[in-house]
Structures are given as structure tokens and as C-alpha cells.
Amino acid sequence: MNRSEAALLLGHCAAFDNRTVGEADATAWASALHDVPYDNDARTAVARFYGTPPKDPHQRLWIQPHNVRTLRSKLRSARLENFQYEPLPDESVGEFMARYRGQVQAIASGRAPAPVGRLALEADPKRDREFVKELTARGWEGNRTVADSDEEAEADSIRRAGPLGVECPACHAAIGRPCKSPGASEKRPLGKPRPKPHSARLRAAQGVPEQTAEQRAVEEQAIRARAAQHFARDDGRIHDAVIVEDQP
């Protein structure tokens, strides 16, 4: 925008705010808007500025060069909201850049009509069912629902994947809280936090049912039997270590 064009734009502003326009004003505005052309978007930016009421009803509107630049950019960006470049087959990088810039400039300036809607994906019921099935196999449990109470919302906020996502069957640590060591003191009335969760909590998080007392007894008996077999195979003797001397 040169000085003559800036004077025309200031005349457009004066129609709204009754300002006095001189040569110094035109020179200053031309310097501030040297990279902004005097076009219909610049004039529309002025009209939009004065068509929007101020936050303070007693405030007098007085447009500045930066207002013209900002509002003009918003006008042009709005036309590009749904723009999607459609490449040509086998086009080179140079051809892509030239066509892309040309389409952006044409739509942003209003020479070409702006896209009216976004491209939508075509529905395929079979593909959708396979996609949902794959998500379910990876642990997806469907859309989340809103909690009915503050207590449920708080419990849901600390729910997480892994062992801390379930209550510990061994020490009864709440969801989201680490497991506790046995015993308590005045300093640690709830017990010292364990660096690793209990095995029972790991099994519960993996969905493995907890063993009954009879099952644990059978498993312990099997472990003792394997240990006895290993001990009997060596005749109960502890072999001396063989010392190997270094060769000179």
C-alpha cells in the first residue's frame, strides 16, 4: 500500500469516525501497511471494525493500522477454513508448490469460491464393524459415560490401567494407591508403601481368579515334592567347590 492508497483507506475510515486526514497520516499508514494491499478486504476490515460494538459502550472506536492488518487476515483465513489441496498425479515438488500457492491465494482473496464443507469419509458398515472389533481386542470398552455422582467421578478419575487400577486383595489398598507393607507405626499408620504391588493385585489386574486355600495347599505341596526330588537326586550331599588354579 503506497501513500495514495493509504490516503484512500483513511478516507474510508473518516466516513466512520470523522477523523481529519492529512499527508502525514497517509505517509504513516503507508509505512505501517507497506506489505498490505489496498483491496476490498482492507476496506471490509475497516467496516467490520466499526460494525462491531466496543466492550465499553462509552468507548470511542478509533481504528489503527494493526486493526486493519489483523481483521484482513481473519477474513482471508476464514475463506480457507475448509480448503484441502487436491494433488495431481506425478506432479513434481515445484509444480505442487506453485499450484498450492495459487489455489490458496485465489481462495483467500475471494477470486475463487471458498469450499463450503469438509470432505467426509464414506461409510462402510463391514469395515466399521471390523474396526470396532479390532479396538475391542486391544482393550477398548466403548464410549465413556458420565458419572452419576461426585463419588463415582472421583473414583473414575483415579482409575488407571495396570495393577493400581484395582483394589488390592492382600492389603486392601484403594484404587490408585500403592500397596502397603504389613505392620504400622505412629509415623506410618497405614504401613510403608511397597515398591511393587502384591502378587494378588497383579493377578487381579490381569483378570486371573484368586486361588482358594485348597488350591494354594496343592500348589505348595507340588513345590515341596519337586524340591524333594531334586534333593534326592543329589543324595542330599553338598558338593565341594572345585578350585582351579591359574596356569603359569
Rank of each mutant, 00 (worst) to 15 (best):
Q59K: 11
R60A: 11
R60L: 14
L61S: 12
I63M: 05
Q64R: 15
Q64Y: 06
Q64I: 06
H66E: 04
H66Y: 04
H66D: 09
R69K: 13
T70Q: 14
L71Y: 03
S73N: 09
R76P: 01
S77Y: 10
A78H: 15
A78G: 10
R79W: 03
R79N: 07
E81Q: 13
E81I: 08
F83E: 00
Q84T: 11
Y85V: 01
P87D: 12
L88D: 11
D90Q: 10
E91M: 02
E91A: 06
S92N: 12
V93D: 07
V93K: 06
V93H: 07
G94T: 08
G94F: 05
E95S: 10
E95T: 11
F96N: 07
F96D: 07
R101W: 01
G102I: 00
Q103F: 06
Q105F: 11
Q105S: 12
I107F: 03
R111T: 12
P113D: 07
P113A: 09
A114Y: 00
A114N: 03
G117F: 10
L119T: 14
A120W: 01
E122A: 13
E122K: 13
E122T: 12
A123S: 08
R127P: 01
R129I: 10
E130C: 11
F131N: 10
V132G: 03
E134T: 13
E134N: 14
E134V: 14
E134D: 13
L135W: 14
L135R: 15
A137L: 13
R138Q: 15
G139D: 04
W140I: 02
E141T: 14
N143W: 11
N143L: 13
V146H: 08
E151G: 03
E151F: 10
E154F: 06
A155M: 09
A155R: 11
A155I: 10
D156N: 15
S157C: 04
I158M: 05
R159E: 13
R160W: 00
P163W: 01
G165W: 05
G165F: 06
P169S: 08
P169Q: 04
A173E: 02
A173I: 00
I175E: 00
G176R: 00
G176C: 05
R177P: 00
P178Q: 05
C179I: 01
K180T: 13
K180R: 14
K180Q: 13
S181V: 01
A184M: 13
S185D: 08
S185Y: 06
E186N: 14
K187V: 10
R188P: 02
P189K: 02
